[in-house]
Design a protein around this nucleic acid. Structure first.
Lengths: 221, 221
DNA sequence: CAATAGCTTAAACGCGCGTTCAGTCACCTG
DNA sequence: CAGGTGACTGAACGCGCGTTTAAGCTATTG
């Protein structure tokens, strides 16, 4: 379904594909409130044709979701063997030709909805696998609850980027690869401090919590 | 400016104030795309009156920003002496009568813009002070760059909550106090693990980075 | 009481949106 | 060549939005 046509150069694509690509670009750059007219103009067609092919603006959005999902799946299958230590988003962002799709994904997460949730869940399990590998390798400390740790770290990492993009929206041609790189450089020090030395000097809070969960007090009310 | 009238009970307020409060409630619950008509209905007035008092929908939004900002300032002045260890947002959320304002702030951050940025910057310095206090007290490890650490931790904390609210939007009467509490309980373990034990088993990455910044390699290109 | 000023409303305006529709064109099929 | 099918367009429709406008109501003032 997603592996049919795979050419580019913009004009030898079927109009339907051109509209879909234009929509992904517009949605990613300006959010899902872009007008159908703007998408049509970007694709070089009339607004009516957009609806003719996708039924409605919502149908177009679903088609975009499906297409991006297909690309992700294809990418995953390709890189499942090459055991690189990069997370899904970094993989995507590092490839320049995938820029519009990364922007689309950011915008999806920013907007919320089912597609964003499923993509985020994918990242969570991605990070969980990544941490488990590090654990097996001996570089990552074992956790008392690896799943929750992965979820916690994922929420922090993705949330921080989401906040950044929301408060300081990038310009027209958003280079998310650069954005992720700059983020990593900017906060490498506090991140590495936190990851290797922790934040607290004593373990009293953790020990108290562990004692608490092993022997919880009675619930009142 | 924000300390003039301070009564409630909804009907003895001036219409202007009633509209403003209704707008804060609507904006917080449904986002800034709520219609002026919906706000007017919530306030029990006609749509025209809303524009009559605030000039435009944007003017109404600015008035809401100013009002919430005023409340925050008042709250800060009150609790500046009581040196509690709670961050600004937790203080707000812990007071039930402030619920609409917390929802409004969440929605502001979610939407972006100048007001959201200034509020977030406030949280950053808030957390920086909080960390510095812990450092002086001996419970928080000193950092090689406290400002950046504060910014990093703030981005993670706020971003994670933003992501949560975006992907799993709360129902009609959003209880953000409960939401923050549930979040803390849910991820107490991985957070405490990370904060007291760190994530990595070796300090090679941190040491390599420290070496790198003290003697950076030549930039090529 | 008459007059003025401000609060308030119902109705409507203008605009931009998603969508529909009638019709044109190109291309297959027999 | 006749006929039909689907891509495609330009124009329009209908709707909901923010906003405007004219008029009514109330209260204060001389």
């Amino acid at each position: 379904m997603s592996s049919a046509k795979r050419s580019d150069s913009e004009s030898d694509l079927t109009a339907r594909a051109r509209i879909r690509d234009a929509a992904i670009e517009c949605f990613g750059q300006h959010g899902f409130d872009v007008t159908v007219r703007a998408i049509a103009e970007q694709a070089g067609v009339s607004p009516g044709l957009v609806i003719h092919h996708f039924g409605s603006k919502d149908g177009l959005r679903r088609a975009c979701d499906d297409h991006v999902l297909g690309l992700i799946n294809d990418l995953k299958k390709e890189t499942i063997t090459s055991h690189d230590s990069q997370t899904l988003l970094h993989q995507l962002a590092s490839m320049e030709e995938y820029a519009p799709y990364v922007a689309y994904l950011f915008r999806s997460v920013q907007t919320g909805g089912g597609f964003a949730v499923s993509f985020y869940e994918r990242m969570v399990t991605d990070i969980e696998r990544y941490l488990a590998a590090g654990e097996a390798e001996g570089t990552v400390r074992p956790s008392r609850d690896p799943a929750k740790r992965a979820r916690y770290l994922a929420a922090n990492a993705v949330g921080a980027m989401l906040l950044r993009v929301t408060l300081h929206p990038p310009g027209q041609k958003a280079d998310f690869a650069r954005l992720l790189r700059e983020w990593s450089e900017e906060y490498a020090l506090p991140a590495l401090e936190l990851y290797t030395e922790g934040l607290l000097t004593e373990r009293t809070m953790l020990d108290a919590y562990l004692l608490y969960v092993s022997d919880p007090p009675e619930e009142s009310g």
